[in-house]
């Protein structure tokens, strides 16, 4: 996580507890969400690492980002990068999760502001819009 922020200069990945408890630092390693504060940069060498910066492509927000916007799923935004990556991975593996599955997926991520309700709503929003986009395609 310090490598991503300080050497690579991608400060979207947030630095919270630094000891794998809060989930602010989640990135995808080979497609799986991991707490980057507890993976040494040397351990990630040779693996594919995706940070929150990868979600927006050519000015187009990822549906999960749009969902957080539409459903007001953040206040201070500190937990948001980790929440986005954790829930992006959830939707990649399970495109139509139940509320309980969403809550389980984010159970290792702490948000002091929202009370989680709107985050669950945002993930549902993204799931439904992605399903609609697939139907149209």
């Amino acid at each position: 996580m310090h490598y991503i922020r300080e050497q690579v200069g991608l400060t979207g990945t947030h630095w919270g507890c630094d000891t794998s408890n809060c989930g602010a630092c989640v990135v995808l390693m080979d497609g799986e969400p991991v707490k980057s504060c507890t993976v040494l940069a040397a351990m990630a060498d040779g693996h594919d690492v995706r940070t929150v910066e990868s979600l927006e492509v050519d000015g187009q927000l990822d549906p999960i980002q749009q969902g957080f916007h539409e459903r007001h799923a953040l206040q201070c935004g500190f937990c948001t990068p980790g929440m986005l990556m954790t829930t992006r991975a959830l939707l990649d593996a399970n495109p139509d999760p139940t509320d309980l599955e969403i809550r389980t997926a984010i159970s290792g991520a702490i948000c002091r502001c929202t009370g989680y309700q709107n985050i669950v709503g945002a993930v549902r929003w993204a799931a439904e819009h992605e399903a609609a986009a697939r139907r149209e395609a």
């Binding site: 989640v26 969400p33 707490k35 507890t38 954790t86 997926a105 159970s107 290792g108």
Partner: peptide, 9 residues
């Protein structure tokens, strides 16, 4: 045990 993200590692 822990949470799903910790369980990945």
């Amino acid at each position: 045990i822990a949470d799903p993200v910790v369980r990945n590692r």
